[in-house]
Structure formats: structure tokens, C-alpha cells
Amino acid sequence: MRRVPERVSLTVVTDHPAPRRWQDLPRRQPLQWARGRSFSWAAPLLLLAGITAVDLNTTERFRIISWIVLVPGIAAAICGVWATAVFAVLAVLDYIAVDSVWPHQYQAGLPDFILVAFAGLLAILACAVRAGSERRLLHMRDIAETTRRTVLRPLPPGWAGLDHAEVYLAADTVARVGGDFYDIQPGPHGTRVLVGDVQGKGLGAVEAAAALLGTFREAGYHEKDLATVAGRLETRMLRHRGHTVALGRDDGDRFATAVLLGFPPGVRDAVEMVNFGHEPPLAVGPTGVRALPQGDGLPLGMAELATASGLPPTRTVTLAADETLLVTTDGVTEARNADGEFYALPEEAARAATSDPALLVAHLRDGVLRHSRGRLSDDTTIFAIRRTATP
């Protein structure tokens, strides 16, 4: 469950800012931009002009025209293939022009000409390889982004009668996916919310999170009792583990902590809650911050270790109309600063002085990143919800 950020949805999603770009594979963006125009060609052009000027304005004892081999090399690092080819040709032509200005006895001659021409060809080849690698990397990021949006689907504003804001910051900034999960599922028996964290990292954690969310979306809609939804989640986790064991993988002991919430229809001051070993949610309101009952249940996938029925009890908690439920994963509470101190979530939530979900989540997101200096050791989710002002 360990390992900035990439996605924020305050019903804004930053991912890493809003990762809602689902066009075709994005094209490579040049490094230098000004007013919407690329100026990546400026550096090799200035280097070309500088080498030419210095060589022409110094004595024969300081001939540096052969340094022009650097020009296509710089272009290969920051420009496209065609631009690199242009600079390779310019370097050769410039070399011929400048070298021929000098008397024959001071000319660099054929050996350096071959060096400049050969360096230009190598630069073009290197640029083509680099461009291909960038295209593959962009394609991989596009796949990772699609995977994340499949697991953590976008939630419409005011979805299912709830004001909500959520931030997901993946510790793996390359893969940009992890084991944290959340969702809101409306249904005939009220609105259900699930926020959790799968133990471990990598694709195995993503698979487990996707399995749990798929079950939640079905059970949360069809099942009348929240306890039945909880039971379905426990069964799904066990089935998923059994499948991974049958495949010969070594993650057959994976589990997940989670908070399952139910907002019954017609009841505006009560919330049902099942806590699977997760840190208890906080109720944030104008009068301060209070912790809801501590989770005394075992994580999903470990019910067989319990002495009683196995599943955590369903609790009903009172929530004022101006209070917001705040659920976070341990990437928040375990974020450390340079002195090794943990992030003080309750105090920071109180310091936010707001119960608006979007403002609260934005405050905590910035606080966690500032506290950890942007070095998150675990996937981090901050999820805030409250009933809308009107049913």
C-alpha cells in the first residue's frame, strides 16, 4: 500500500491536473514554448551562430569550427527528427563555408569535415530512436490512464445526492495507478460509498481494487441491507485471492482495508457504516472535527480470522446537515516531513475552517504534499462527501 502525484478530482481531477484527455496518443511537446509556439530550435541555432562567430573572430591558433559537431547533437536531444536533420545539414554547410574562409594552411580540412558529417548522421539516428521511445512511453501512459479511469471512474458533480470531492495521488508517478479505490453507487435502497486501500503495490493491487469495485457497483445497487453488501465484498476478496493462487502467484494473502457507507433514502441525519479495519472517518463541520467510531472489524479477506460472525458490525452514526464525512487512506496519515513527523490529519482538517468538500480536500492535498515535500511513500486518497442541500 506504499509508494506526485497524479489525480485530483475535486470534482476536479488533477493528474495529475485533470486527466481527462482521451484523444489519440498525444504528440510530443517541445521543451521550449512561448505564446503557443515552439522554440526548441533556438538553442542549437544559437550554438551554431556562436561557434561560427568565435571561429571567424579569433586567430588561427584558436580554430573551433570542429565544435560544430555539438549542434546536431543538441538538436537531437530537444528537437524533432526533421529539425535535427536540418541542423545536421546546416552544420556541414557552415563548416565548409567557414573553413574555406581561412588560408589553406590553417584549414581544418577533410578529417574534421568527415567528423561533422558523421556526427550529423548519428544525431539523426539518435533523434529517431529517442522519438520512438517517447511515442512508446506516451502510449504506455495512455494505457495507464485508461486503466485508472476504468478502476476509478469519474464521478459527476452532485452524484446520487452527494456533494463530493476526491483526490488520488499515486506514489508511482510513472504507472500512475495503485491500490487505493473509491466509488459512489446510487440505487433503490439509497446511496452507497466505498473507500479503501488494497495491501501491496503493483498490478496485483490494481486487480484486487478493480474486483472489489466491480462487486460494490452491483451489490451496492441491488442489495437492500448494507451488511449484505459487506458480505459480498468479503466473498469477492476471497474469490479473487483464490484465483491468484490458482494462477501460481504469490499474492494469495492480499487483503484490503475499506470503509463502506450507506446513505438511506429519506433519512438526512444518519449514515450507516461498516469499517473493514480502516482508519475511522472524520466528521468535519463548523464546530470542529470529530472522529466516528473506531473500526473494530478485520480487513476484507480476513473475516475467517474473526471469532464471531466474521464481518464487522453495521453502525449507524449521526451526521449533521452541515458536516462533511472525510475518509482518507494511510498515505495521508503516514506522510512524514523531514523530521519524521506524521501528518496531523485532524488538526489540519480543523485548520481548513470549512466543511465544503472541494475546499477541504484541496486544503488537505496541499498540506500533505507540503508536509512530505512532494515525496509520497504510499498511494494517497482524500475523499470528502456530504448530502446536497436539497434532496
Rank of each mutant, 00 (worst) to 15 (best):
M1C: 12
T14R: 00
H16P: 00
P17A: 09
P17S: 11
W22A: 00
D24S: 10
R28N: 10
P30R: 05
L31P: 08
P44H: 03
L46G: 14
S66P: 04
I68P: 03
L70W: 11
C79F: 04
T84S: 04
T84D: 01
A85V: 06
V86G: 10
A88C: 06
V89C: 12
Y95S: 05
A97M: 09
D99M: 02
S100A: 09
V116R: 08
A117E: 02
R130W: 00
A131I: 06
A131E: 09
R136G: 14
L138A: 13
R141T: 00
D142Q: 05
I143Q: 08
T147E: 00
R149K: 09
R153W: 06
R153F: 06
P156I: 04
G158S: 08
W159H: 15
L162H: 01
F181C: 00
P186T: 03
V195M: 04
Q199R: 11
A205L: 04
V206D: 05
R217I: 12
Y221H: 14
H222L: 12
T235I: 12
T244F: 15
V245H: 10
G248M: 05
G252V: 01
F255D: 03
F255A: 01
L260R: 03
L261A: 08
L261N: 06
G262Q: 03
V274L: 01
E279P: 15
L282M: 13
T287R: 15
A291H: 15
Q294I: 15
L298W: 10
M302R: 13
A308P: 14
S309L: 14
T324I: 09
T324L: 04
T324N: 06
T328C: 09
N337I: 04
Y343G: 05
L345H: 08
A350D: 12
R351C: 11
T354I: 07
S355A: 12
A358E: 09
L359G: 13
L359K: 12
R386N: 11
R386K: 15
